[in-house]
Design a protein around this nucleic acid. Structure first.
Lengths: 205, 205
DNA sequence: TGGAAAACATGACGATCAGCATGTAAGTTC
DNA sequence: GAACTTACATGCTGATCGTCATGTTTTCCA
């Protein structure tokens, strides 16, 4: 815990701001978007309603900031996981595991809450779209590096297929689907991906 | 529009009940779960709050009933689509298209809203789980009939992979992702599925 | 045909929501 | 170290939420 005495204004500002954003994420994960109220966020952050009023003009702005906060966190988590990956041919299966881990964690759970809520909230939607697109492209770039000599077009296909499959599986996991089946599906998909990888490298069309 | 005069009690009950459930689905699709209030539902159904009070003891019970209503609607829609499918070998791609159509429509949008909300609502979750599992199994059964002589184990894998991929793609569509990319991904997945289908039938392991 | 029961409407209740107005403490600047 | 600005706390307001108590209409049954 950082000290509370002798903080500069910028430090105070940044500190409570991140506290609010982290509390917002916690709230989304714990009680869901529908019951994520400003009061609940303040209680978790240990600040008053006046504080959030000072930092964000409206709740929508807080949510928009939470989206960006979430995305940077996800990017950092992903980058950290990527450093432990062996770059090369056999990395395809590992990359899929990595994407699954990334898209099935608590951070992505919060993202899903915001995502679904954004469908009927144009303001939130406008805030999410560019940030999410940037995250997707950055992730794709990192993954293609791991994928090795796979043709970029093929790699992109595999990436997006994996991402969307993983998101579907994450939804299944959220509702309490059979974890064993998810494991089997992921293993099967890895086999398929490796197979496609061999096809694309040994006999490129 | 059915007549309003000389209705039997059972007719009245059923009529306003389905009106309420349909209005609930509309509400979920239009404004999302977070802003789906009893008042809004009543306004759309053209009844008073007392009516919903008479049919459902609490809002949670209404939502649980909406889940079942949704699932039966989805099942009917699916069964209707299945009747127009040619059963046989080339039906794999058609079956994938069918699953995509089913899981990307407005009904599934409403289901997703309830699904995500159910993650943090044990009561709603308990209502959804068995119904959704039954729908999944019924759909699987129908699809395996279309898939023809594909080994059941293989067919089940392909089915669940398709379902989860489709759900991920549906999420992407909800947020306004690139429709062209989704089309490409779906086409690619169909090619992969057909390829796997040939592998499994011509050289079964 | 008239009373019982079911279906539905109306209005009010406490709780909670987001937003604002105002007050207080901490840091900055000179 | 005193004026000033920033950071945050407290308390209120109107709106809306889900729920309930009570009235009104419609169907049913004898």
């Amino acid at each position: 815990m950082t000290s509370t005495a002798h903080r500069t204004q910028a430090q105070r500002r940044e500190q409570t701001r991140t506290a609010l954003l982290d509390a917002t994420i916690d709230c989304l994960v714990d009680v869901g978007y529908a019951r994520t109220s400003v009061q609940e966020i303040c209680a978790r952050a240990g600040v008053s309603k006046g504080a959030v009023q000072h930092h964000f003009t409206a709740k929508a702005e807080l949510m928009a900031a939470a989206v960006e906060h979430l995305t940077t966190k996800l990017r950092h988590q992903l980058a950290a996981s990527l450093d432990e990956l062996p770059s090369g041919g056999t990395g395809v299966a590992a990359a899929i595991d990595l994407l699954w881990t990334g898209y099935s964690g608590t951070l992505s759970t919060a993202v899903t809450e915001l995502w679904v809520a954004a469908r009927t909230d144009p303001e939130l939607r406008a805030a999410i779209r560019p940030v999410d697109r940037a995250l997707g492209r950055a992730t794709l770039e990192h993954v293609t590096q791991v994928a090795g000599e796979l043709p970029p077009e093929r790699a992109e296909m595999l990436f997006w297929l994996t991402v969307n499959l993983t998101r579907g599986l994450a939804l299944d996991a959220e509702l309490g689907g059979d974890p064993n089946r998810r494991r089997q599906l992921l293993e099967e998909w890895k086999r398929i991906a490796v197979l496609l990888y061999q096809d694309a490298t040994t006999a490129p069309s």
